[in-house]
Computed example of a mutant assay.
Amino acid sequence: MKLVNVTNSYKQLVNKQLENTDAYFVKVYSAGNTTVVYSEATKHAEILIVNKKRAVRKTEINEILAYFLKRIPKEKYRQEDISIIELKDVTEISIPVTSSLVEQ
């Protein structure tokens, strides 16, 4: 699966996320009919996977999670603390982090 950065096409969504949540970093990616919103905050990272045409597949969830976990240093999260909430056309993945992902 190839994720394409389409953040510039979602400026309003990104601005709303930054204004109304504790996120300091938001990126939007596309993989065909699947849209992925990745955000980072001081104590967690969030991945929102949306596909309005069909249910999000387990393989997609696993690939997308693996893609973003590569970007987070292993010492900043514990695999067993990651929570995944799956609904009909939306999946939310929450990754608690032990310290900020941005270096001071």
Rank of each mutant, 00 (worst) to 15 (best):
V102Y: 11
R71N: 09
K16Y: 05
I82T: 08
Q12A: 14
R71G: 04
K88W: 07
K43T: 11
K52S: 13
I95T: 02
E80A: 13
H44I: 10
E40N: 15
A55F: 12
K70I: 04
S100K: 01
Y38N: 05
I95V: 15
L65V: 04
E80S: 15
V14P: 01
Y38H: 12
S100M: 00
E75Q: 10
A41C: 11
K16M: 06
R71T: 02
S99F: 05
D81L: 14
E46Q: 15
I64G: 00
T91L: 00
D81F: 15
F68R: 08
S100D: 10
V4F: 09
S39P: 04
Y67I: 04
K27G: 12
D81K: 15
L69R: 02
L3S: 09
S99Y: 00
V50L: 13
N33K: 08
T34W: 01
V90F: 03
S83T: 15
I95P: 02
H44L: 11
F68H: 05
V6P: 04
S100T: 03
S9I: 04
I64Y: 03
I85D: 09
N33R: 06
M1N: 04
S99I: 03
K58T: 09
K88M: 09
F25M: 00
Q79E: 15
K58I: 08
A66T: 09
L3N: 10
T98F: 01
E60H: 08
V6D: 03
V90A: 11
R71L: 06
I95Q: 10
V90D: 13
K52P: 11
K74F: 06
L101M: 01
D89M: 07
V102W: 05
E60K: 08
K27P: 07
V37M: 15
I93L: 01
V4P: 09
A23G: 06
F25P: 05
N62K: 15
E63M: 09
Q17C: 08
N15L: 06
T7S: 15
E103N: 12
D22S: 01
G32V: 12
R54E: 03
E63W: 11
I47H: 03
E40F: 06
I85Q: 12
I93F: 09
Y67W: 15
Y38M: 03
F68K: 07
Y29C: 05
T98A: 11
N33E: 14
K53N: 05
L69W: 00
K11F: 08
V90H: 10
L101N: 00
K76H: 01
V4K: 11
T21K: 00
T42W: 06
R54F: 03
I84H: 11
S30R: 08
V28P: 08
V26W: 02
L69H: 02
I93Q: 02
V26N: 00
N15R: 01
Q12N: 10
K53L: 04
K2S: 10
E19V: 06
A23D: 14
D89T: 14
N33D: 12
T35F: 05
N33P: 14
I93K: 13
L18T: 07
V6R: 06
A55M: 07
T21V: 10
R54A: 14
E103H: 11
L69V: 06
A41P: 10
K2V: 12
D22H: 05
T98I: 06
T59R: 04
E86G: 02
